[in-house]
Design a protein around this nucleic acid. Structure first.
Length: 552
RNA sequence: GCGCCCGUAGCUCAGCUGGAUAGAGUACUUGGCUACGAACCAAGGGGUCAGGAGUUCGAAUCUCUUCGGGCGUACCA
């Protein structure tokens, strides 16, 4: 419908302007029903080049508008808006569209089946996942679902930094615990991890337990002199723990990539040599530097430390080169904003390699910190201190659906205060239940109706004329645009907001109108409308990874 | 110091690539279950969109600046 109106306007514009090629017609959905079903600001945009009053231009455009039976009336309003009012039968069409498309309603093919990789969570295997990881998980997974709904071929990937200084810390911490050294003891590693889970790992190691994570299986030797064995076991143990966290959150990855594998295969060393060859590196103060200032960084960065090891962004560059070589021309990295400095470095490294990677590749979605409130006070999230709200605790307290919704329902780039007491105490007032309740209500009515759902596609919908019905149909028709915009803006929270509005429309309609009335034609039309609403709610919840129960 | 993000109702937050009278939830006040599920609905009060300047027909939205908060600016990741 949008395309049809755009086309009509373009034809009208041709009578006023010689060159219509540069005209970009923007149609919007007015917030108020008084302003019609579609609104266009074309007259205001043309006011300047034509040097005429916007309202006059609007009048002329309307005069020149070709006739169309789907449009009931067109009028000028405000400063020069052209408002379109659709004919009633045109509005009904959306219900049939939805019933026919079913679970595919709202989906599109803008991705053209091309490959996209979404990397998210990517927590270090040094502890269980916490709320911040949960936000990354919720946003990343929802983003993946959105891209898939937009016709992309999505690969979900998790990258483990299972090499480097933090893993050394982990190993030393486990060793110390296995030796019976308390965390407050002077001989406990200075930057060691203090959490109680370290003691659990130490105990398991001494008991020579076996752990399985993804594709690896490690049995502890129990030998405290064997640091390599402690390291392998500890990493595997925590990867297993994180697997359980992810399972509790109902998140699945297609690929797990390991930093250690990049070292083992010699790929990291290859990258370093290629960077040296590129001429963008130099040695100074016993370290090897990458001249990232050649690529818009404000200072150069160390690649190889004095002690010989590489800094974290070197394997990151290698990893992203691998992504490119694997054919991902589109890559989205979802990560915490505290790591945002890595963006410039990774991109700089990729540019220095000069292998044809576009300048702004890859894309990033950064989420801001999650502060956790309990008892009116902020709970500090520190792996080393051990005071820790784990994702699994949270899921147990407030449920998987509610946790996912809360963490995905807000813009990623604003800080999030997760009040555990509130989430737990007000479970029934949670917006996710509000949406699910709308879905369950519809299911309940349909069950009592007991008719044949497939007959609804041919139902006569002319009875759907009340303001509530019009308003609901209008809301349903917005869903495809929301799905497309949320994906192109990489903003999954838009789905959550939309669903709340959609549920609200349904609840208002429900309280205002009885559906199961005696008049067969009216009843059938209403069954068709609420069935369409059910599809939209269900499809939307699916994009969030939240369930749509038939009864609650 | 420099860079990135944020600042909207008492609180938690929406506001799409600039549009019409700035919206929800929550809390507070009031009304609605002998109708298909009251985990719901309807109505009311509550705002200098942090402050200032600019761009233009028009700014919460774009630019500059001040203030406030977070993060980064590590040879941690």
């Amino acid at each position: 419908m949008k395309d049809i109106i755009s086309d009509l306007l373009l034809q009208a514009a041709k009578t006023l302007v010689a060159d219509t090629a540069s005209i970009n017609i923007i149609l919007e959905r007015p917030k108020s029903a008084d302003h019609g079903d579609f609104s266009c600001n074309l007259a205001m945009i043309l006011a300047k080049p034509l040097r005429q009053n916007p309202r006059t231009i609007a009048e002329q455009l309307i005069q020149a508008l070709p006739k169309n039976t789907q449009i009931e009336k067109v009028e000028v309003a405000g400063a020069g808006f052209i408002n379109f009012y659709l004919a009633a039968n045109t509005k009904h069409d959306i219900v049939k569209d939805i019933l026919q498309a079913g679970e595919h309603y709202g989906h599109n093919q803008t991705g053209k089946g091309e490959k996209v990789q979404v990397e998210f969570v990517s927590a270090n295997p040094t502890g269980p996942l916490h709320v911040g990881h949960g936000r990354g998980a919720a946003v990343g997974d929802c983003l993946s679902r959105l891209l898939a709904a937009n016709g992309w071929d999505v690969t979900r990937e998790f990258y483990y930094n299972d090499a480097g200084a933090q893993i050394d810390n982990l190993t030393k911490s486990v060793l110390a615990r296995a030796q019976g050294i308390a965390t407050d003891d002077a001989s406990f590693p200075e930057n060691g991890y203090h959490g109680e889970y370290i003691a659990d790992i130490a105990k398991a190691y001494l008991a020579k337990e076996t752990v399985v994570a993804d594709d690896i299986k490690v049995t502890a030797s129990g030998d405290l002199a064997d640091l390599e064995s402690i390291r392998h076991f500890s990493v595997a143990y925590l990867r297993h723990e994180q697997d359980l966290d992810l399972r509790a959150f109902q998140i699945q990855f297609d690929v797990f990539s390991l930093e250690s594998a990049l070292y083992a295969s010699g790929k990291v060393e290859e990258t370093v040599q290629a960077l040296i060859k590129s001429g963008h590196t130099y040695e100074e103060e016993g370290a090897l530097w990458l001249r990232t200032t050649d690529f818009e960084d404000d200072k150069d960065r160390v690649m190889r430390k004095q002690e010989g090891g590489y800094t974290y962004f070197v394997p990151d560059v290698t990893y992203h080169l691998e992504k490119w070589n694997r054919g991902f021309t589109k890559v989205i990295n979802e990560q915490g904003a505290d790591h945002h400095s890595t963006i410039t470095r990774v991109r700089a490294g990729l540019q220095a390699l000069n292998v044809g990677i576009p300048k702004g590749w890859p894309d990033y979605v950064l989420h801001q910190m999650v502060t956790v409130m309990r008892g009116g006070e902020e709970v500090k999230l520190s792996k080393r201190a051990g005071s820790y709200v784990t994702l699994r605790d949270l899921i147990e307290e407030v449920g998987c659906d509610a946790t996912r919704y809360f963490l995905a329902a807000r813009r990623a780039d604003s800080q999030l205060a997760f009040d555990i007491d509130l989430a737990r105490a007000q479970t029934n007032d949670n917006p996710v239940y509000y949406i699910q309740y709308a879905h369950a209500r519809i299911c309940s009515v349909l069950a009592q109706w007991g008719g044949d759902a497939s007959s609804l596609t041919s139902a006569d919908l002319s009875a759907l004329t009340s303001p509530r019905e019009t308003s609901l149909m209008q809301k349903l028709s917005e869903f495809p645009d929301i799905v497309q915009n949320a994906a192109s803006d990489l903003a999954p929270h838009m789905i959550a907001n939309y669903l709340k509005e959609c549920a609200s429309e349904l609840h208002s309609y429900y309280n205002d109108t009885k559906f199961l009335v005696d008049d067969a034609s009216t009843k059938l039309a209403r069954m068709a409308l609420i069935t369409a609403t059910r599809h939209v709610l269900k499809n939307g919840l699916a994009l969030l990874g939240v369930s749509a129960p038939n009864q609650m």
